[in-house]
């Protein structure tokens, strides 16, 4: 079945709709003028963005949070997917599924309510740790989904063969199953990193004064009014995250072809 001409024309328009806003944003991040008229190529706004200490600090926070969330959520999610593959648990599956589609704002305020309730009894406050925990929570379901998809295609008799040859359950998991899952785990980790790095809604609700993230700074700048530095930093984010997502989808595709 080939594509008819009108469908191809439509697809071009649809892809333009999806990509042009970002392309325009990137192009104008190189504009020497601060207004939306092209006045020549310049790196002014990139220099301004890099000189901004608030942006630098927020980027550091975001990277730290995303790395911690990636490590934890990938570990918890991979183990969880493996456990569910051994035998399904309707409770955990349903909760994971629900957490995937719960509106971010609801998840954010419910976590905030939990934290505030705990703070009545413990002398801790909102900060990096609360953000990291929140991110691990909403990212774990992504990892379980991606790794479970790979496990569905995994031949259970490989583990049985390993145990038949004298491996313990843990050894069978670590030496036989996990290596088979490695591409899916890596792909899931990249997705978690992207999701965590980019989150604004939940983060802004559970962040403390010392844990302002990059999306929070960008949000504040965008609300305040037009600032071409936002174009520059946005372009960098899109390019970086877009690169990661390409790597991630390549990992998944190579796996599908195996």
């Amino acid at each position: 079945m080939k594509n008819s001409r009108w469908l191809s024309v439509y697809a071009v328009a649809a892809y333009a709709f999806l990509h042009l806003p970002l392309v325009v944003l990137a192009v104008f991040s190189f504009n020497s003028s601060r207004f939306t008229q092209w006045e020549g190529f310049s790196l002014t706004w990139y220099k301004a963005a890099f000189a901004d200490t608030q942006l630098a600090e927020a980027t550091g926070n975001s990277l730290l949070i995303a790395l911690a969330a990636t490590l934890l959520a990938t570990a918890v999610g991979t183990l969880g997917a493996y456990g569910l593959w051994k035998r399904n648990s309707p409770w955990i599956t349903t909760s994971l599924y629900l957490s995937l589609v719960t509106p971010e704002i609801v998840m954010g305020i419910s976590l905030l309510a939990l934290y505030q309730w705990i703070f009545r009894y413990l002398a801790i406050r909102l900060g990096m740790h609360t953000v990291i925990l929140a991110h691990v929570m909403f990212c774990t379901a992504y990892v379980v989904t991606v790794v479970s998809a790979r496990l569905r295609a995994f031949d259970a008799s490989l583990e049985e063969a390993a145990m038949d040859l004298g491996a313990t359950e843990w050894q069978a998991f670590l030496r036989v199953t996990l290596p088979q899952l490695a591409p899916a785990v890596a792909s899931a980790a990249l997705l978690v990193f992207i999701t965590s790095f980019d989150d604004y809604v939940i983060t802004s609700l559970v962040a403390g004064v010392d844990s302002e993230t990059l999306p929070m700074v960008i949000y504040a700048m965008a609300r305040k009014g037009f600032n071409p530095s936002v174009n520059a930093i946005s372009t960098l984010i899109v390019v970086a995250l877009g690169g990661l997502i390409l790597v991630s989808s390549r990992l998944e595709r190579n796996e599908a072809e195996r």
Partner: peptide
């Protein structure tokens, strides 16, 4: 574009 930053994509439309 779907995965690469919801915030930036919304900002692009503000722009």
């Amino acid at each position: 574009p779907f995965w690469s930053s919801f915030l930036v994509r919304t900002y692009a439309w503000m722009f």
